[in-house]
Simulated scan of single mutants.
Amino acid sequence: MSHVDLKPMSGVQVAAPVGFRPLAAHWFLIVGVLAMIVPTMVSVAQQSWSTEQGAHGPIVLATGIWLVAILRKEFVPLIRPGSLLLALLVLVPALAIYALARVTTTLELEGFALYFAMVAVAYAYLGAQAMRMLWFPTIYFAFLFPPPDSLVSTLTQPLKLGISRAAVAFFDLFGMPVARKGVIIQVDQYDILVAAACAGLNSIISLSAIGLFYIYMRHNANWRYALLLMLVIVPVALLANFVRVLLLILITYFFGDAWAQGFLHGFAGMVMFAVALLSIFAIDELLSPVRARLSRRIAA
Rank of each mutant, 00 (worst) to 15 (best):
L250K: 09
E52G: 11
V271K: 04
I280Q: 14
M41T: 03
F20H: 02
V187E: 04
P147W: 12
W135M: 11
F281E: 15
V119L: 15
G269Q: 08
G32W: 00
K73A: 14
G266E: 10
A101M: 07
I233A: 10
S150E: 15
M41R: 01
F242C: 04
R72G: 02
Q46V: 05
M1G: 10
M176D: 03
I280Y: 00
P22Q: 10
R291C: 03
L114K: 15
I70M: 12
V76P: 01
R21V: 14
R102Y: 03
R132W: 15
V245C: 09
L238G: 12
D172N: 12
L85A: 14
A45H: 03
V92N: 08
R297Y: 02
L246M: 13
V103Y: 11
T252Q: 07
P235R: 02
L86S: 07
F263T: 12
D5Y: 02
L91Y: 01
Y225P: 00
I184R: 07
S288A: 14
L34S: 08
V90D: 00
K7P: 06
F75I: 05
L95S: 12
W49C: 10
L89K: 03
A258R: 09
L6K: 09
V90H: 02
S206M: 14
M41H: 04
L151T: 13
